[in-house]
Design a protein around this nucleic acid. Structure first.
Length: 269
DNA sequence: ATCCCGTTGA
DNA sequence: TCAACGGGAT
């Protein structure tokens, strides 16, 4: 991957100018507290900003620190998460809080390897935390930034993640790394979707109505208002087949979201 | 009906 | 490498 120095400079100017005129001011762009940054980044995984905003504010009010979060019940956490989807993320966040309190004595590590060990934190989020909370000069690539780089440098849609990461590092400015990433993300939003992602139906999801997912959601919703539930209760509420319910329960169990004791279904822990 | 979009585990 | 995970606005 080689890119002309002048090309990099002009790209940087273009992105910076775009940000000066069209950059979004978002609450999680005004803070660098590692806890708040982590909460925002995990909420923002697979989830639009507009959906995250009210939940993010409410979450920080209710659980303002790692310590407070580590002491919260799963029931309370899942209730706060309701509406965001991918409920595993809420439990990941609580696990992270427990690890930070117990293993790191309340201080989030700033080492990439340590960060990636934490549940729910992968390639993108570990880098994002280092950039937004620890002010590191590092690049991170989400699908929007990927789209911006492919488009700007005329790269083929099948360019590998490692190549994109390398390019992102190459075009990284010397300073204001946080703003650079905000700018890239905002700029990328204005670009058309990647054709091959549409072609591969990457955004396609199976119908919600009648899905196992629908039952999963209902079970979790019920468990945020009562201590346990049975297969029979679920059948009555959802009017779904025993097979579908068994599947949903088994999936939730595998995801460590629920546990079963004497035919009763409880939230984990 | 379509759209958004990172991590995990097999 | 790839399926599974999610719900609400439009």
């Amino acid at each position: 991957m080689k890119v002309d120095v002048q090309e990099i400079k002009s790209f940087q100017r273009k992105i910076r100018e775009f940000y000066r005129q069209h950059g979004r001011e978002l609450p999680f762009r005004l803070i660098d507290d590692p806890y708040a940054v982590t909460v925002s980044e995990i909420m923002l995984q697979q989830t639009q900003v507009d959906r995250v905003l009210p939940k993010y504010r409410a979450w920080l009010k209710k659980y303002p620190t790692w310590k407070k979060l580590s002491l919260a019940s799963n029931k309370s956490i899942l209730a706060s998460w309701s509406g965001l989807g991918y409920n595993r993320r809420a439990l990941y966040l609580k696990s992270i809080a427990e690890i930070i309190i117990e293993k790191y004595h309340g201080v989030m590590p700033s080492d990439i390897k340590e960060l990636k060990q934490l549940p729910g934190i992968g390639e993108y989020t570990s880098h994002a935390i280092l950039i937004f909370a620890f002010n590191k000069r590092l690049a991170t690539v989400d699908t929007n930034i990927r789209k911006a780089l492919l488009s700007e440098f005329n790269l083929p849609p099948d360019t590998s993640d490692s190549e994109i990461q390398e390019l992102a590092q190459l075009v990284l400015p010397k300073t204001k790394i946080r703003q650079w990433h905000y700018a890239l993300m905002d700029f990328a939003k204005t670009l058309p979707k990647e054709i091959h992602l549409i072609y591969k139906n990457k955004y396609k999801q199976s119908k919600f109505d009648g899905s196992i997912r629908q039952i999963r959601g209902e079970i979790i919703r019920q468990l945020t208002t009562q201590p346990f539930i049975t297969h029979k209760d679920i059948a009555k509420i959802t009017k779904r087949t025993e097979t579908d319910i068994a599947q949903a329960v088994s999936d939730l169990q595998k995801d460590k979201i629920i546990i079963i004791k004497e035919d009763k279904i409880y939230l984990q822990k």
